[in-house]
């Protein structure tokens, strides 16, 4: 019980403590990888990582773009693209004219993200967008593998092949019959997508993808 009281859980029940900075690799090696499709006939596996435990921050609404510009952050153009913010080691995803999601480039390193969040919270200006509560309401998975686009084609209506959807593209569509945002990040240096969807449906998403993998 002491463990439960002191730690947080992802929607899939993965117990974790708040992450301190200093994890050098872009993916924490302690993460549990779920194999959705096992390796077979010389084709690599398709694996899924639950990144829900890691920090992210979203703002939307009137003033959000101006606030980000005031911090010397170049906005992604057009909508539905990701732009790296190299100076802050962040990735900025644009989901709408005034709708942004900020991700750490290295998921274990959240100091820069926390600083940006803190600057936004303490800013007294009237129009700065509003907090979209992306940590609280969205689960965050990463699915990757050489054949990940073919695999997701079983459940996603958009063509996700690498030649149709370049790196840093964003697709807002449905996966496993759930509203889902896919961002092509290739964060394991493999063809891969970050998935953001309703946090209460994380278990359903996981079991649906595993079932599809077994089919």
């Amino acid at each position: 019980m002491a463990l439960l009281a002191a730690s947080r859980r992802t929607p899939l029940g993965d117990v974790y403590a708040e992450h301190s900075d200093g994890v050098l690799s872009s993916i924490d090696t302690t993460l549990i990888r779920t194999t959705v499709v096992p390796e077979s006939h010389g084709e690599g596996p398709i694996e899924l990582l639950d990144l829900t435990r890691y920090a992210r921050f979203g703002i939307k609404g009137k003033g959000a773009s101006d606030w980000l510009r005031s911090k010397a952050i170049a906005l992604p153009e057009p909508v539905n693209t990701l732009a790296p913010v190299a100076s802050r080691k962040l990735d900025l995803v644009r989901l709408g004219a005034e709708d942004y999601l900020v991700l750490p480039q290295s998921v274990g390193q959240s100091a820069s993200l926390a600083a940006l969040r803190s600057a936004w919270e303490s800013d007294g200006r009237e129009r700065k967008g509003f907090n979209a509560w992306r940590e609280e309401v969205w689960a965050w998975f990463h699915i990757h593998g050489a054949n990940v686009a073919d695999f997701l084609a079983k459940t996603c209506p958009v063509d996700l092949n690498a030649d149709r959807l370049p790196l840093r593209s964003v697709v807002q569509t449905r996966v496993a019959q759930l509203d889902c945002i896919l961002v092509r990040t290739d964060r394991t240096n493999d063809h891969g997508f970050d998935l953001f969807f309703d946090v209460a449906s994380a278990n359903f998403m996981m079991s649906s993808l595993k079932e599809l993998g077994a089919a």
């Binding site: 909508v79 209506p157 958009v158 449905r174």
Partner: peptide
């Protein structure tokens, strides 16, 4: 599936609307 063209996201299944 009927396809509808979203001005922001492009052609999508009508079930997304």
């Amino acid at each position: 599936m009927k396809i509808m063209n979203c001005p922001l996201n492009g052609p999508r299944n009508i079930s997304e609307f």
